[in-house]
């Protein structure tokens, strides 16, 4: 109950985390002329650099491959940031947690909001790519909204759970980015899920990240994610919250002492 109260309480502080999240985006590109547009630019480099090379390697037409790559990469950047930054949700706000009594969820919402904004800057490139290659994503693209909502719900439990564990056992903080880098290559982002055959299908169907990528990537390209994708993501959401709530409720009072 205490944990749920904190989740709700954090919303009341929206003015604080909206401000902090926005400042986080700005401060990454401080003193540059283009500012956060660099986020879009680096995605554009990926689209045209990797897009042209890998479409050749994979033997696919640029028309199909570049929209697929950009949608997948945008989604992956969002997901991996939620995990990689989520584990630091409390550690990186140590001074605030020791000085000012605000609900810890403020720092979770702060990083979610920051990454929504970054997702937005990346999505600008996606829109341009879709225009260039004349992909018309309507009406399925509207499914991106519930998909985003589900991903954010998962972002909350991931940050609260990993953030808590990482405050106590810092080795987790070293492990996670390494794991995420590996997962990037074994998840169908640069390649298509259908091209994995036989035992390799394990990397697709037993890889939770595949479902999280697919649930957002498909609508962005105007496709409807399969029911299995929705079911798995929904299942992980419920499971994650069920694990996080009691763990967080039990240990949350220790966070300020661990960091």
């Amino acid at each position: 109950m205490e944990a749920i109260r904190e989740v709700r309480e954090g919303w009341r502080w929206h003015e604080l985390w909206l401000t902090l999240g926005w400042r986080d985006v700005l401060s990454r590109h401080r003193q540059t002329r283009l500012g956060p547009l660099w986020i879009s630019l680096s995605m554009a480099f990926v689209a045209f650099g990797m897009g042209t090379l890998y479409s050749g390697i994979m033997g696919q037409s640029v028309h199909d491959y570049i929209p697929y790559l950009v949608a997948g990469f945008t989604t992956w950047n969002f997901l991996s940031a939620l995990v990689n930054e989520g584990k630091d949700a409390f550690v990186s706000n140590a001074s605030a947690i020791r000085e000012i009594p605000v609900p810890s969820t403020v720092f979770v919402y702060r990083l979610l909001w920051k990454n929504i904004l970054i997702f937005g800057y990346n999505a600008v490139v996606l829109v341009i790519v879709l225009l260039i290659f004349q992909v018309w994503p309507f009406p399925a693209v509207l499914l991106a909204l519930p998909a985003l909502a589900l991903i954010l719900l998962n972002g909350v439990w991931v940050a609260m759970l990993l953030g808590l564990i990482n405050a106590r056992y810092r080795d987790l903080g070293q492990l996670i980015p390494n794991a995420m880098r590996l997962i990037f290559f074994v998840t169908p982002i640069l390649w298509h899920a259908e091209s994995a055959t036989g035992a390799r299908m394990i990397f697709v169907y037993f890889n939770p990240m595949y479902y999280f990528v697919e649930i957002l990537r498909a609508p962005l390209l105007g496709q409807v994610p399969s029911l299995l994708v929705w079911a798995v993501v929904l299942g992980i959401t419920v499971l994650g919250w069920c694990i996080m709530l009691p763990v967080y409720a039990h240990w949350r009072r220790q966070i300020a002492l661990w960091i």
Partner: peptide, 27 residues
Amino acid sequence: PLLNLSFGLDMEATGYDNIFIRGLFLG
């Protein structure tokens, strides 16, 4: 609580911005 005067101050932000940041943190 007024425990640490330097808390909530963002060195890159202007003084006015910092009034908002610190003020929001203080509720």
